[in-house]
Design a protein around this nucleic acid. Structure first.
Lengths: 201, 201
DNA sequence: GTCTATATGTTGATAGAC
DNA sequence: GTCTATCAACATATAGAC
């Protein structure tokens, strides 16, 4: 997005968009109002252009969702592709994956936020949720292996543990703000500390 | 809701609703499609009546949301009113509140699910989120006290701990199903076990 | 790259009959 | 307690001018 004015100062008078700036603004509004509740009119208002101008850059509202979800899922899938995610022992790989997944959430916050709030009511949403489930399953297998190694507790079902781990990690989108006092690295440290050690002294 | 037929058998031929059955059906559809994305037409279709019939029982779509949120928040606020939530030491009260909050989630699952997915875009939603925040703050104070007592770790900020605890508890609405293999009591046990002890052996 | 104008359908809600 | 019929507002998306 470029901002221009008569003498090219910081005065915001007119905006010109490309697909990237449309996407960025759209995802922000999607997250504030919910994807379904966001009308193209509201989106246009927030971008400072008309509805028609949006359709010059993207063919539909759903295409914007598709682009956003791809960024979120691409980030998560990238975690599993890292060499550190495939080097034993399992508990070390689990530690890495929890940290890396948390980093993806903080780095790509608006895109992952959108992903985590999907319902699965359209084909596109169902496909995205299936990719997310595949990622979750891979982590569940790590938990299983770590249990088999005796590295983590086995008195709680591996699926239950996986769900609670993601409960903590995914909650990041509900309270982390990139401009806040807490750094992204500290968030990952806290999550791993509480996940592995618990809160009891 | 009553189901009647010519000879009063189990054959479903015609449904008659009251406000309670409207609410129950509405919350189910709200959770499946999202509150905003649920039209009165879709709601009517799911209830087996027309839009107009719904308006005989409730004045608006938002009123249904209000009823639902009150049940969720009433349950959570009831947790803090319990004598066990006000008896020292802090770490015992925290244990109780985590269990009791989890029970509220499983007992009133559809209502709390709706609450946890709010955005805060209307006055009603903002009021509900404020009540939720008040509950969260009370738990954060318990965490603070337990840290002061030396009962739980102090190397992680009390607000961070509170957020992660709620991350685990609130994730329940994303995976717990009352008809499933896992009992509600087991869910609370697992959450408390992982929260206090962590997963590392 | 953005605009105005418009097509076509859906929305929440109401009036009044049975 | 439910229905049909209706409304004004708003939805996504397109056509064509600048």
């Amino acid at each position: 997005m470029s901002v221009t004015s008569a003498v090219d100062t910081a005065v915001k008078s007119r905006v010109t968009h490309d697909q990237e700036s449309i996407l960025l603004g759209a995802v922000e509004v999607f997250n504030r109002h919910g994807y379904d509740a966001t009308s193209m009119g509201l989106l246009a208002e927030n971008l400072g252009i008309t509805k028609s101008a949006i359709y010059h850059h993207v063919p539909s509202k759903e295409y914007l969702l598709e682009l956003a979800l791809d960024r979120a899922l691409g980030g998560l899938e990238g975690v599993l592709a890292d060499p550190l995610a495939t080097t034993s022992p399992a508990v070390s790989r689990l530690d890495f994956v929890l940290r890396a997944a948390t980093e993806v959430l903080t780095d790509r916050l608006p895109y992952v936020t959108l992903l985590l709030r999907l319902r699965g009511n359209t084909e596109l949403e169902r496909a995205a949720l299936e990719r997310r489930r595949t990622f979750n399953r891979a982590v569940a297998e790590l938990v299983d292996e770590a249990q088999a190694d005796g590295a983590i507790r086995s008195d709680v079902d591996s699926r239950a543990i996986t769900r609670l781990l993601f409960g903590m990690i995914n909650s990041v989108v509900d309270w982390y703000r990139p401009d806040g006092r807490v750094s992204a690295a500290k968030v990952a440290d806290d999550i791993v500390a509480v996940a592995f050690g618990g809160i009891r002294n």
